[in-house]
Nucleic acid binder design. Structure first.
Lengths: 354, 354
DNA sequence: CTGAAAGCGCTTACAG
DNA sequence: CTGAAAGCGCTTACAG
C-alpha cells in the first residue's frame, strides 16, 4: 500500500514520511521496478487506451482521408497520454470484431466512417463509450463528427459561379454517406441563390474514388455529345476530381482553360495531381485530434474541464461551440459536430472561355 | 476451473461431461458472459498485442511509405489474431516512450525506420522482443527487414542504360539510412558493369522528400550550366523523383523526352505525379505483414512452424529463404532480411534524344 | 504515518 | 470428471 502511494505520486491522499518515501524510491530504482499496466488496468478498470476502427485501406487506394484522420487521432492520443489500438475491418458488417475488442483492453472507441444499425449502436454502447467521424448516417448513443458538407459545397459552387460559370456539373460520392446529400444540397443552394436553375441532368451519382470520377467524366462527355459541355465540375471528393481530371485531359480538354474542376477534402492527393486541385478543406487532422478529446470526456464524465463553450444558437436548432483548440463547430439537431470547411484555391479553376 | 476449461474450447486438456459443459455454456449465454482480456492477460502474461512505433507523420508529408507498411502490419495482425497498438514518436531519441510501452500491454514491438543505439537496443531487448523495418543501421538483438536496395538501384540504373543513357545522375536520400549507401552502390555497379565511368559529381546528396528532389534538380541544373545536362536521373525515392520532376518541368524540360527520371519505392504517389514514375518496387505491404509473422515467431519460440525454409546459400555469406507467403528473401551477414525489389516501368523514362 | 486484507477476473496445477 | 486454492501484480478502503 505504501509503495503504491509513493510510486503513484499523483494520488497524494495518504501522507508518507520522507524517510519511508526515500527508502521505497531507492528500492524501486535498485530493483528496476516497472509497474505492470495490466495489473493496474485490472484493478482500476482503465487502460488509458482508445480503440480506432476503420475499413481496411487497400494498398491501391489513393484515398488518404482515413490516414489523415488517424494521424490526428495519434496526435491527440499523444497529448492526452492514451494508447491507441488500431483495428481494421473488411466491412462494417463485422460487428463481432468490434464487440470483441471491448473486453477490457480499451476505454472507448473511435469509429472512422462507420455504417451502424441502430440496434448495433445500442449494443456497442452497452459495452463502451464511442464517437465517430464521417458516419454514414446519424449516430445514436454517441457523437459523430464531420465537416460542414453543406457549407463547403456551397462555397465551392459559389466560387465557380463567381468566376463566371453558369453550367456547372456535380459528381457525387457514395449515396449511403449522408454527407453526399448535404454536398449536393449545398451545390443546389448556391446555384439557386445565383439565379441559376438547378438541372438534375448535370448531377452524376458515383463513389468517392478516382475510378468513379473517371467514369463520371466519361458519362458527362457522352451526354454532352448532342448539346454542350458544362464549363465547370464540382466533384464531391479530391479522388473523384483527380479521376475526372485525368479523363478530361486524356480526351483533349485543358484544365482549367476549357473546364474548371473543384474537389472536396483537401486531401494530400489534391496537391499532387497534374493540376493542383482547387478544393474544400476538411480539417481532418483536427477532427481526429478532437475525437480523442471528446471521447475522453465521455469516458471520464466527472472531468470538469469542458472542451467547448457555447457561443451561439440558431433559432434553437443548431448550436455553435468554441473548442479549446480555438476551432468553431456547429452542433446539429441530430447531435452531429460539424467542423468548418474552407475553400482552398489552386490551379484547377479559372473563368470560362468567354 | 471447469468454466474456464469449457469456455476456452482450445485447451482440451481436461475432460468435462457433456451435461456440465452444456450447463456452463447455457449459463454463459444467459448471463451474456464476456471474458475480460485484461484478467486473462494478467494471468497468462500474453495480451496478443503487438506494438508499432513510428515517427509522427506530418500532415503535409506526401511520404506514404510508413502508412503502406502499417497497412501490411494491420493486415498481418488480422490474420494472426493480434491487436495492434500504434504509437508515434517525434524522434527516435524518445526512448522512454518505447520503454514505457513495454509494461505488459504488448508482447512485442515492430519499429518502423528506427535509429537505435546499441545500448538502447539491448535495453529494449531486455523488456520485449522486437523486429524492425527500414532501420537506419544494423539492428542488434532483433531482425531488420528491408528491400534489396543494392539490387533495386542496380536494376533501375541498368534500365536507364539499356534505353541508351550514358550520363546518369543520382539523387540520394538521407545519409543516415544505410539503404542510401546501398542504392548508390547499386547505381555505381550498374554503371561500371556497362563500362561507364562513375562520376562523383553526378551524385547529389539529399533526403527522401520531394523538396529535396526539387533542390537537387536545381543544383543539377546550376552545375550543368557550363557543361551539358545528364539525360537521366536515378532518384533514391519516389518523393525525390516527384520533386525533381516538378522542378525540371517548371524549368522547361520535358520528361521523359528531354530527361528520364526513375524513382524508388513504388509508393502510391509514384502513380499520381504528372508523369507516372518508373520506379523500383519495394513490397511494403508484404514487409509489414511478414514483420508480424516474424515477431510472433520470436515471441512464441516453441511454435514449430517456421515461416521460412532455406533454399540457397551464397558462399556462406548470405542465405536465401523461401517464406510461406511464397516470397524469397535474402539474409545478409548482418542478419538483415532483404525482400526482392522489382522494376516497374511507367511513363517517366524513355531513350535519350538521338 | 503504515501495513494487513480484500478484490479486480481470469488460469493453472493439484487434490479429490 | 469436478472444484478448492493459489497466483498473476496491482489498488483501495480500512484498521491500527
Amino acid at each position: 500500500m505504501t509503495v503504491s502511494a509513493v510510486l503513484n505520486a499523483a494520488r497524494s491522499g495518504t501522507r508518507v514520511s520522507e524517510a519511508t518515501r526515500q527508502r521505497i524510491i531507492e528500492a524501486a530504482r535498485r530493483l528496476k521496478y516497472r509497474p505492470n499496466a495490466i495489473a493496474q488496468g485490472l484493478s482500476k478498470r482503465r487502460m488509458n487506451t482508445i480503440g480506432v476502427v476503420c475499413i481496411t485501406q487497400f494498398p491501391t487506394d489513393i484515398n488518404m482521408i482515413v490516414h489523415e484522420v488517424l494521424n490526428g487521432i495519434l496526435d491527440g492520443a499523444n497529448t492526452w497520454n492514451q494508447y491507441t489500438i488500431v483495428c481494421t475491418i473488411a466491412d462494417w458488417v463485422q460487428e463481432q470484431k468490434m464487440l470483441g475488442m471491448c473486453d477490457g483492453r480499451l476505454d472507448g472507441l473511435i469509429l472512422l466512417g462507420p455504417s451502424l444499425s441502430e440496434s448495433f449502436a445500442e449494443q456497442l454502447y452497452s459495452l463502451t463509450e464511442y464517437v465517430s467521424i464521417h458516419s454514414d448516417g446519424p449516430v445514436k448513443f454517441g457523437v459523430n463528427m464531420d465537416a460542414d458538407n453543406y457549407g463547403g459545397a456551397q462555397m465551392a459552387t459559389k466560387h465557380l459561379i463567381s468566376l463566371g460559370h453558369r453550367r456547372i456539373a456535380h459528381f457525387e460520392g457514395d449515396a449511403r454517406y449522408h454527407g453526399t446529400a448535404d454536398r449536393t444540397c449545398g451545390y443546389r443552394t448556391a446555384l439557386e441563390e445565383a439565379g441559376i436553375e438547378f438541372d438534375p441532368s448535370l448531377v452524376f451519382p458515383g463513389s468517392f474514388t478516382s475510378p468513379s470520377g473517371f467514369e463520371q467524366a466519361q458519362l458527362l462527355m457522352d451526354k454532352s455529345k448532342t448539346g454542350s459541355m458544362p464549363t465547370a465540375i464540382f466533384c464531391a471528393s479530391d479522388a473523384i476530381a483527380i479521376g475526372a481530371l485525368q479523363k478530361l485531359i486524356e480526351s483533349g480538354f485543358r484544365v482549367p482553360e476549357d473546364i474548371s474542376i473543384t474537389g472536396f477534402d483537401d486531401s494530400l492527393i489534391s496537391m499532387m495531381a497534374s493540376r493542383q486541385i482547387t478544393t474544400v478543406r476538411q480539417p481532418l487532422h483536427k477532427m481526429g485530434r478532437f475525437a480523442v478529446e471528446q471521447l475522453l470526456e465521455q469516458i471520464d464524465l466527472d472531468q470538469p474541464d469542458h472542451s467547448a463553450t457555447v457561443i451561439g444558437r440558431d433559432r434553437g436548432r443548431t448550436t455553435e461551440l468554441l473548442l479549446k483548440s480555438g476551432d468553431v463547430v456547429t452542433v446539429t439537431p441530430q447531435n452531429d459536430l460539424l467542423f468548418r470547411s474552407e475553400l482552398v484555391l489552386r490551379e484547377s479553376t479559372a473563368p470560362p472561355k468567354s
